[in-house]
Design a protein around this nucleic acid. Sequence first.
DNA 1: CTGAAAGCGCTTACAG
DNA 2: CTGAAAGCGCTTACAG
Lengths: 348, 348
Amino acid sequence: MKRTSLKDIAKLLGVSPTLVSMVINHLGDEKGINSETQKKVWDLVKKLNYKPNYAARSLRLGNSKIIGLIIADISNIFYSVIAKSIEDNASENGYSVIFMSSEENPKKEEEMIKVLIDRGVDGLILSTCFSDRDQIRKLRDSNIPFVLIDRYVPGVKASYVLAENYQGAFDMTRHLLSLGYTKIALLHVTPSHLTTMKHRILGYQHALRKNGHPVKNKLIKEIPYDNIRKNMETALKDLILTEKVQSIFFLNNKLTIAGLETLKRLNIRVPQDVSIVSFDDIELFRFSYPTITSVSQPKEEIGKLAFEILLNQINDRNADKQQVTLPVKLNIRESCGSSMLNLFRVED
Amino acid sequence: MKRTSLKDIAKLLGVSPTLVSMVINHLGDEKGINSETQKKVWDLVKKLNYKPNYAARSLRLGNSKIIGLIIADISNIFYSVIAKSIEDNASENGYSVIFMSSEENPKKEEEMIKVLIDRGVDGLILSTCFSDRDQIRKLRDSNIPFVLIDRYVPGVKASYVLAENYQGAFDMTRHLLSLGYTKIALLHVTPSHLTTMKHRILGYQHALRKNGHPVKNKLIKEIPYDNIRKNMETALKDLILTEKVQSIFFLNNKLTIAGLETLKRLNIRVPQDVSIVSFDDIELFRFSYPTITSVSQPKEEIGKLAFEILLNQINDRNADKQQVTLPVKLNIRESCGSSMLNLFRVED
DNA sequence: CTGAAAGCGCTTACAG
DNA sequence: CTGAAAGCGCTTACAG
């Protein structure tokens, strides 16, 4: 059974496809089409449940009402919450979302951008892992509207929505210092050029220096994204057994989870033997033992704003690039050892 | 700058668009096209970075190489892991995935199906919340290939990929009985027609009966999906304080998390005051205090198989409907009180 | 071995 | 107030 087309409607009504098209696109009044005729068209459209063919419209108009979303991994709650928020907002505005997971692999990301552009998406939201300015410039020069989320590429003018990575890490480090810890280690993840990581590391370093503590590079460890588990044990043993650190600051939720797991396996108690804190708050941290002090990011807001900015750019190709940095929040829990009295309390 | 088209290539080479099209679609040899000519085409295609216009091809061919994915909520790890798996497999086969979150709302789901079909997706994977057979029949009659995941609609012949819900709940209940608990409550979520819930409830009931224990309806509570938190406290107070149950079986991960939160707030200790277990294992359950005994489902496998079956149906409209039920696994942890010695152990 | 022509289902500039 | 015609970029049946 063939889908009904514009032509079918026109033929049945004895009018031209032109007229039907105009009515359906709500140009009836503007084009001065008889309101009775308009009504007839609408009635038949409803009756036959006519829906315009997107492919045809897309071919003709040169847009697709689809946007592409490239993130590192949709199964990471950080991204899936953002994805949900983007999709909700996109839906409300008549857009659909194609998503892809780049696994922090620039080659993959490049390929995905190609596929999405070939598909004719109207815009792109991406949590890019590009380090090379040329890669993002190529994207910019392709003339497709796009908005970066979570990270950006320094030196390339582009719209983005980020969290206050520097401030969050600064505040968290200061909090640890205020608890009396001075030997504070930092674990971050590759690719090491990610601005999220860079800014969080800076926040940590500045908080130490501003409070009169030296930054020791030995206490800053880098863990490869695709091999977190294997490298965690070596890193933690070195930091805790050799360097005798008092605190460890994990720079994202994956690291923290792997860290928790490893610490348990090594029978190292948190916070008695070592206190830990995390960047990026997830539900698990409110239920784990101990609960994890962390910096939470406004994920829904990131998604919502990213879509709004993108939409704006789709509708106005000359719109100014917008850069937004959203505030983060410190959640003090048990893992930093601030107050053992709270051991069984849960915040609402 | 206009994208290069087939015609551009043809003109530059002094051949017809027909020829270029055939070469590009790898029909060169079949159509007996001079291999030198073929090479010339490919060279220019590479040089100009020509990519066929999806919209045009889609309009002409009547397919889109896009599939739709409708789940309850992409930000629930259960679905996001499945989504990741589907997208990975789809990508490998040249398909892209549009996702939408129905929030267990049949109206929304119906609307989303419409939008996706209007968009011309080639197939659909859905975790349907339809109770009405007519709704799913309408989908079937629309003639678009689709595969159900997680749940199905009884009485409608359709392809699906499920987990062994009955068996998982049966085994888990038997495990609780084997630990000496006999007053075992069950918490499930609306919509109550979901086959997942129904089968898990059945598994629980049969396990009780087979072991000589009565099924008490007072111990089976239903919590509305969109208002889990508010209803949890009433339900738990009733079960624990009034009914004095020894165990609670939560039928999905959302319920378990809300349950854990509420129990903490009420200062009810797990497993000392009440033991709990969950259907659907998530990472949080390995880190929570206590760790949560649960039934885990093969999420990646569900996604992978669902896509394979869908692809098969897209390629052969008359392919037989396939129904797959995948085995689940019991993860015994601390929350059921089986062995307090394991309190700080983590499985690998 | 290769090409001219039709057509997928729309929208829009133009004409009346 | 309404319609005929062109064209978006492909593919395919047909012709030679």
